[in-house]
Write a protein that binds this DNA or RNA. Structure first.
Length: 710
DNA sequence: GACCTGCTGCGGGCTG
């Protein structure tokens, strides 16, 4: 039925491709998109034909003879735009619809041609759209003033993050230059039943956005292995076992950090050389040069014959298609269930194939967390997504962007545009006006002839290459070998002449450092240390920690565990046997000895951080470890119980305490690129909303049952 | 005990 709704040229395209039938998500999307004007979120697993599900009906329904770009496709990655360009161009080739790539690495001449003759489909990134609004606002209306559809790929990657708020604001600004309503189609992997509301929110119109969902999942086979680590490097036993498990397959290994990624690639390659195994060992992460990464992706995608092993970070978690993978290896627990879902989804992509995953652990808490994630994965749980309600930092960024776009406008006009933008719906009119006043005071904006323009400070911020994105990046040194770029690494004490480093799955000796030009010259070497990178800890969601405690208090046997992991879980169960825990949310195992108490909170990282902050306000110095979710306090149980009242009282003035903390510790606002430009009160608000979780911390402290061992 | 993402406009020199 859906097929018959399509225009004849599109039906011919399907006949020529000899598709036997439409995929479920395609049939549903074609019917809905053609017969209604609603926005849709198409959610189904990777490689299920979502791109065609959106574009077949859009191409059928849209008149591409009208002036202006008709369809805008937005992607979080340049690599994905380049991939999708071929797919979309293939759909359009007999329809005389032009397709244009528009991103930082796209040809300028193609952009110029499009401006002369705006038409067809444009593939773009959010940052390129931001840049267009700032530098050539007239192009926005010329190109996108008659837009019919916006397609957002990998929409889940925008949810709950600053980049998503920026995109949401840009979508609203594009709608503001259009007379008629633009229809939005979001493409997504499954994001959990409770999270679809967040995807709807991004389109700016929750009520007329509907979800089309294909929940079909692959069967997954998991195997847990335990090899205790006693040093900072991986044990030889683990590496030997890992080699045995991976040498005769096409494998992706996810070791959670760039340093360890290199360690594994280099060490497995060494073992393989020794036993005459294959030579296709690679590392793939953000510090490896882009061209080298692309050649690795190309090899994985186009080679049928040889086995390979790519040790990688989340660079290979989403987006780009790297073809068939037999097996996934996870070294120590993922930080979230959704990350585990994405990684497992990378194997067994062919019809009827199972996904296979090996989960290694190098310490007991990581094993327990990994098992908890696996249980939650099987139950269909995915972490809840929270969109910031009052993103003052993004408001500042967008206010400056709009001021530049309009190059002078009455204050009422600027105010109106912010009010019309659903991204800032929860921010009050008083707050907007107070902030505009503050920004005038700080010279971000300036009042001239009853119009607001960018002030001197505002110009400095906007006229920088850094302005277009809302995420931070670290400064790097280029690593070069005989003129060829190997990658980029941050400066660390390790960057010294004669030091050996691992990069791009090879070992290098540093022979020269050019501090002025930020360059490091290297030559091949035969032995070296893994590179050091900086980074904060990850945030673990409270549901994972509750599941960890629940595993400790159950007797369930897991056939997925090998002998040593079974023993480790048994030992941990023995350690926690005496604690009569019933409620996994509020019951906390508790030990008191020698004037100290130890509390196992088994709760999320943000809640732990908030507890730590609240406890330190009472004057005691908690010693807190998020890895095991424990607090050690040099007080007795009685004193601890008396603190609860004091903590509740302090919480009533939490913003004042946060302001003091922000003055003393500037890095606290570091998670927000534009937050540091805000007045202190507003910094405190976004820290409270996004960095901490005081509401749940207070709920826990007020309901906490300390369970002693019997 | 972390990972990832993107990027204008202009002038000057060089190549075909």
């Amino acid at each position: 039925m859906s097929y018959n709704l399509l225009s004849e040229p599109i039906r011919k395209f399907i006949r020529d491709k000899r598709w036997e039938s439409l995929r479920p998500i395609q049939a549903a999307a074609i019917f809905k998109i053609i017969s209604t004007d609603n926005n849709y979120i198409l959610a189904s697993r990777t490689a299920s034909g979502k791109t065609e599900a959106a574009f077949l009906p859009i191409l059928s329904k849209t008149d591409f003879n009208s002036i202006g770009v008709q369809v805008l496709y937005i992607s979080p990655l340049i690599a994905l735009i380049n991939d999708q360009f071929y797919r979309i161009e293939d759909l359009c080739k007999d329809l005389e619809i032009s397709v244009t790539k528009w991103h930082g690495e796209a040809k300028k001449s193609l952009k110029t041609n499009l401006i002369k003759n705006p038409n067809g489909i444009v593939l773009i990134t959010p940052e390129s759209l931001e840049a267009m609004f700032v530098n050539a606002p007239y192009n926005v209306s010329t190109l996108f003033g008659n837009l019919k559809y916006i397609v957002i790929d990998e929409i889940h990657s925008f949810l709950g993050v600053d980049r998503g708020l920026q995109l949401m604001s840009i979508l609203s600004r594009i709608q503001q230059v259009n007379k008629s309503k633009i229809t939005t189609i979001g493409l997504s992997a499954t994001i959990g039943d409770d999270n679809y509301i967040e995807a709807k929110r991004l389109t700016g119109d929750i009520d007329s956005t509907k979800i089309l969902l294909d929940k079909a999942q692959k069967e997954t086979e998991a195997k847990f292995k335990y090899f205790k680590n006693n040093s900072t490097e991986l044990s030889l036993d683990l590496l030997k076992d890992l080699y045995k498990e991976t040498s005769s397959n096409k494998v992706l290994i996810f070791p959670n950090s760039r340093g360890r990624t290199e360690e594994i690639a280099v060490k497995l390659r060494k073992i393989s050389d020794r036993v005459n195994g294959h030579k296709f060992y690679y590392s793939h992460h953000s510090s490896v040069d882009k061209e080298i990464r692309e050649s690795v992706e190309h090899f994985a995608k186009n080679n049928e014959r040889f086995n390979f092993c790519i040790s990688c970070t989340s660079t290979l978690e989403l987006g780009i298609d790297i073809g068939t993978v037999d097996k996934i290896v996870q070294i120590d627990s993922t930080h979230s269930v959704s990350s585990l879902v994405q990684r497992i989804g990378r194997s067994g992509r062919r019809e009827g194939e199972k996904s296979i995953v090996n989960l290694y652990a190098t310490n007991k808490w990581s094993l327990l967390q990994s098992l908890a994630c696996w249980n939650l994965y099987k139950s269909g749980f995915l972490e809840p997504i929270n969109t910031a309600k009052k993103p003052f930092d993004i408001l500042l960024h967008q206010l400056l962007s709009i001021a530049k776009q309009l190059s002078g406008c009455p204050r009422s006009e600027l105010f109106k545009r912010i009010r019309l933008n659903p991204t800032f719906k929860e921010i009050t009119e008083i707050e907007i006006n107070t902030l505009i006043d503050k920004f005038i005071e700080l010279d971000y904006l300036e009042n001239i002839d009853r119009e607001l323009i960018l002030g001197i400070e505002g110009e400095n911020i906007v006229n920088s290459r850094e302005f277009y994105s809302v995420f931070k990046t670290e400064p790097n040194f280029k690593v070069l070998h005989s003129g060829k770029k190997i990658g980029d690494i941050p400066f660390s004490p390790q960057v010294r002449i004669d030091e050996n480093i691992l990069l791009a799955a090879k070992i290098w000796k540093i022979v020269d450092i050019d501090f002025k030009g930020s360059k490091i010259i290297v030559i091949p070497a035969s032995d070296g240390k893994k590179p050091k990178f900086f980074g904060g800890g990850g945030n673990i969601q409270n549901r994972i920690r509750e599941e960890m405690l629940s595993i400790l208090k159950s007797n369930k046997n897991y056939s997925e565990l090998d002998k040593s992991s079974c023993e480790v879980i048994a030992e941990m169960r023995h350690d926690f046997k005496g604690f009569a825990v019933k409620d996994f949310k509020f019951d906390c195992p508790f030990i008191e000895k020698e004037g100290k108490i130890l509390i196992y909170t088994f709760t999320g990282s943000k809640i732990n951080k908030s507890l730590n902050f609240l406890l330190s306000l009472t004057g005691i110095e908690p010693s807190f470890d998020d890895h095991s979710s424990t607090f050690e306090l040099e007080i007795d149980k009685f004193t601890f119980k008396n603190l609860v009242q004091e903590i509740n009282e302090k919480y009533e003035r939490i913003n004042d305490y946060l302001k003091v903390e922000l003055t003393e510790n500037e890095s606290l606002i570091g998670f927000s690129k534009w937050g540091e430009y805000l007045p202190l009160d507003y910094q405190a608000e976004i820290v409270k909303e996004r960095y901490y979780d005081f509401e749940n911390a207070i709920e826990l402290i007020n309901n906490m049952n300390l369970i002693e061992s019997v």
